[in-house]
């Protein structure tokens, strides 16, 4: 008996030591740890809205719960979309290339929240009145924008797996550039439906503009670097077309 319990405590100590030793910054274990922490963080807004929707634990969504739910889900979706788009510029600036491991997770959460936003709109707000829905999509430009933005995200969510990445090869990257159009449409949709006070939507728009600008600046610099390199690599008497990577 005594030996048995000793072996148990030993095992526990060993497990603890293994789990709680801080993995090295940027290592595989490190990104796995961050990912584990990221999941509950990404789900927290949903939990908060869910508790509010059913008025649990003292949470509530105020006098107009449908509107609150609709607006919060939409804004969280856009926040995740902007976070997803922030990964690449952050990588360039910090050199922390491991950040890219979170991009798919954040992108899928963006899609998840925006899809819930859409569901709340058609089920709770429009009450599955499809004729009114069709009219909305066609006649209300801000709804047309939002719908298009969400539709553009759909193929990205479907092809976000490793298998599809492999299958599409170079075309995968091209396809996933749709995220820029989707983000622009999404923020535009937000801006357009505001009655008067556009401050919050303007903040989203400015962040998106900064993130897109960062990409343009980066690709210009990269192009210039390649240009310089190709000029230095060019043999003096070749006279032919410059080398391209």
């Amino acid at each position: 008996m005594a030996t048995r319990s000793r072996s148990l405590t030993c095992t526990r100590a060993w497990i603890c030591a293994e789990t709680f030793s801080m993995p090295a910054f940027g290592s595989k274990g490190f990104t796995r740890l961050i990912k584990t922490l990221l999941w509950p963080l990404c789900l927290a807004p949903l939990l908060w809205l869910g508790l509010g929707a059913f008025e649990l634990l003292g949470f509530n969504l105020g006098a107009n719960p449908v509107e609150k739910l609709l607006h919060e889900l939409g804004k969280w979706g856009l926040k995740f979309l902007l976070l997803t788009l922030a990964i690449t510029p952050l990588r360039y600036w910090t050199g922390w290339h491991w950040l890219v491991t979170f991009r798919r997770l954040l992108g899928l959460f963006a899609f998840f929240y925006l899809f819930l936003h859409f569901l709340v709109y058609i089920v709770l707000d429009r009450y599955l009145d499809f004729s009114g829905l069709l009219e909305d999509i066609v006649e209300r430009p801000y709804i047309t924008l939002g719908m298009t933005g969400l539709l553009l995200l759909l193929p990205l969510a479907l092809t976000s797996t490793r298998g599809w990445m492999r299958r599409l090869g170079r075309r995968w990257k091209k396809l996933h550039r749709l995220v820029y159009a989707s983000a622009i449409l999404g923020v535009w949709h937000f801006y357009w439906q505001v009655k008067l006070d556009t401050l919050e939507a303007t903040v989203y728009a400015l962040i998106l503009a900064a993130l897109l600008l960062a990409r343009i600046v980066h690709s210009r610099r990269k192009a210039a670097r390649i240009q310089v390199r190709s000029e230095t690599l060019l043999p003096e008497d070749s006279g032919g077309a410059p080398l391209r990577r």
Partner: peptide
């Protein structure tokens, strides 16, 4: 007569909760 950006044909009743129709 709709607002240029949204319909005025129906309204949400405040206080009717999450699952009430317009």
């Amino acid at each position: 007569v709709d607002h240029p950006r949204w319909s005025q044909a129906s309204e949400r009743i405040i206080g009717s909760g999450l699952f009430a129709p317009r």
